[in-house]
Design a binder for these strands. Structure first.
Lengths: 257, 257
DNA sequence: GGACTTGCTTGCGCCAGATCATCCACTGGA
DNA sequence: TCCAGTGGATGATCTGGCGCAAGCAAGTCC
């Protein structure tokens, strides 16, 4: 059978590190948070934001640092991390375009609760915390949208907690892949390609496992035809099979007979 | 030394299952969400709420059920659970007076994301989702408070995720105890008594462990003088020691030398 | 185009914590 | 006061997943 082949991701087309000034307002206007606003309101919002570019891997804000701003992902992907005292990193979220982060900053908390890293090269818009607070006061509709989004994140986080405490690693990896597929995947002829560089190390940090374990589980998934993968990329071939794995009704072992 | 003694919790004084109609508005007015409101506004809010009483152990709403209302804890404690397909329960939160839950309901999600159980006998105020949405639209300040609270919960949940993936059980149990102490504890002559019936089974479901393991860890904590506990109660004697355990710099084993 | 870097794979030993099985101590009810 | 039921303690055993370490392959840089 076909051995894994060359990286199917086109890195640069994925995340140009520029972000046309004209596009900026359009991107804001299309986002969940601001799409209900009038043109003037949108302009007001827009002018509060400051544009910043980050190459892949660059730190945008650091856990524990004084929280001055709130960020909006205009282009690219941002990875949110928490560190353990021992130095391990846990990936708590991977934000696509339109994601908001540093959110607690604007609400009076003093410090960033997590580190944000440019996962791909990206363009980020930032507002100062007080300015954002003013926006929320002036446009209640925005506040409600932000609240909705926070609630969804809370739901996701609690779901992750449930998974972490009740499911085994393979189920969690399957779940992570399915979610990534939904949020960042692109349907191709041969399954859903996850449109983000995804080293197994990151996957491990998302599900609370080691890279070795991820490798072993993925090897099994490949053997069973559920996914295909290579250096920093994953393609989902059989979502149904993954779903079965998530729900626990899977081949628990190599199941010889 | 003194062996553990009789349950120091006075069950009935903890959670009367009545909730004086006059007190109701006062409780609302004191809550984080509504305390900024004028008397008339508060009255408007108050009249949207419907009062309900639950004896300990009763289900308030069920995970997956159609989400019609949002709830406010007027008295007593409410336990939020998620179920795994295999039937295990995970405790995602333990709400004290003033807690809001079923929150996603009001925001257009169709189903309750978790089961709510009366942990003690309690009095709960409920609003229909549309009515709550109206309140949010009419009183933007309330929306902001709700958002703050959701952000805090999100932060807690993500912190829990970090703990689950990086820390060992004993650290997680220590952390759970410290948090419970802060939220539900009462300073007594002999340390902080957690003012809620707390069987080890619940503690286990909060940290993702089995009751047996919790028992073993608690036995060690008792041996080391960090806590005292008995049937359904825990008293924190040495918060500093627990903190040490959380941070990993603890006696990893029986530490012979 | 060859050497280097970085990420993936795989084997082996080990340990934290689950599981199974009792036994015991309280508590609440009759 | 006694009894039944529930929650807690504890020993024995098993195992999923981790840690370490060596080897391999895909990109990358000169």
């Amino acid at each position: 059978m076909s051995r894994r082949r060359v990286t199917p991701l086109h890195r640069d087309s994925l995340a140009p590190d520029h972000c046309s000034p004209k596009l900026r307002r359009e991107i804001l206007g299309r986002s969940t948070y601001f799409k209900g606003l009038s043109a003037e309101a949108l302009a007001t919002v827009d002018e509060r934001f400051r544009e910043q570019h980050y190459p892949a891997g660059k730190v945008i804000c650091r856990e524990g640092g004084p929280a001055r701003s709130l960020f909006f992902v205009a282009h690219g992907n941002v990875k949110l991390l928490r560190h353990s005292p021992a130095g391990d990193d846990v990936v708590v979220d991977l934000l696509p375009q339109g994601g908001l982060f540093g959110g607690l900053a604007a609400l009076g908390l003093g410090h960033y609760p997590e580190t944000a890293l440019a996962h791909t090269a990206c363009c980020v818009l930032s507002v100062s915390a007080p300015a954002f607070q003013q926006l929320l006061e002036r446009y209640p509709g925005v506040t409600i949208e932000v609240l909705k989004s926070a609630s969804r994140s809370l739901n996701d986080a609690r779901e992750a907690i449930r998974q972490l405490t009740t499911s085994r690693v393979d189920a969690r990896i399957a779940m992570a892949l399915v979610k990534l597929g939904e949020r960042l995947g692109e349907e191709t002829g041969h399954g859903i390609l996850i449109q983000v560089p995804l080293p197994q190390q990151d996957l491990a940090a998302m599900v609370g496992a080691t890279p070795e374990t991820v490798s072993r589980v993925m090897a099994r998934m490949k053997r069973e035809g559920l996914v295909d993968s290579g250096r920093q990329w994953v393609r989902i071939l059989d979502p149904g099979g993954l779903q079965a794995m998530i729900e626990g009704r899977a081949a628990p072992k190599t199941k010889g007979a």
